[in-house]
């Protein structure tokens, strides 16, 4: 088993939290993990990405080669497109539909959606709304994790344990809110394939 994941978003949107949850889940299954992150200036509202690699065997490169990502998991729709050259032929793109518009030349959302629709496997969901609907308004990133959960090569139990470990320091209420977000994302995952 080997899963290469690009996590994408804008600095401050919480992609490292998703990465941490997946990382913990992978360790529960005794997988090898390498996870490359962006720190520093780009975290100030710039485009950020994380390369997350999970495997049964030792992993050489900290970076995913182009055309190899099994999944692009993006918490922002335009950012999903920035890493398309990394996507494998049958790879999945799972993205939040809510734009983060901190630039003046943000493209039209319909063009972004068209671009994603042209891919063989893509999922589009309003994670912000879904997070609100399940009374976990701060957990849209974990909704996204739930929506991508089928493509990670990890069991749901491991992923839940990963979510728990990430939030356990913040208390039971926060853990429960994120469990709700995770389940909400999971429910919507297969329904939201763009046709």
């Amino acid at each position: 088993m080997k899963t290469d994941i690009i996590l994408a978003g804008v600095g401050g949107q919480g992609i490292l939290t998703i990465a941490a949850a997946i990382g913990f889940a992978s360790l529960y299954e005794n997988k090898f993990v390498k996870q490359s992150e962006v720190h520093g200036m780009s975290q100030r509202g710039g485009a950020v990405q994380s390369h997350l690699r999970i495997s049964d065997n030792p992993i050489a490169s900290d970076l995913i080669p182009l055309g190899n990502a099994d999944l692009i998991l993006s918490v922002e729709p335009m950012e999903a497109l920035r890493y398309l050259p990394y996507l494998a032929k049958q790879g999945w793109v799972v993205t939040n539909s809510v734009p983060f518009e901190n630039i003046t030349d943000y493209p039209s959302i319909s063009r972004i959606k068209d671009e994603l629709r042209a891919l063989p496997n893509s999922v589009w969901l309003n994670a912000d709304q879904l997070a609100q609907d399940c009374q976990s308004p701060k957990s849209s990133n974990i909704v996204m994790l739930g929506a991508a959960s089928e493509h990670l090569g990890l069991s749901m139990d491991s992923l839940r344990a990963g979510v728990e470990q990430v939030f356990s320091r913040k208390g039971k209420d926060v853990v429960d809110a994120n469990f709700r977000a995770f389940e909400t994302g999971r429910k919507f995952t297969s329904k939201l394939q763009i046709n």
Binding site: L81, L84, I103, A118
Partner: peptide
């Protein structure tokens, strides 16, 4: 030989860091 997924669409905007 290297592979590559789909090209980045031309309309994609840069998102440089900015002051908070």
């Amino acid at each position: 030989e290297t592979k590559s997924g789909p090209a980045i669409p031309e309309f994609l905007a840069n998102r440089p860091p900015s002051m908070c």
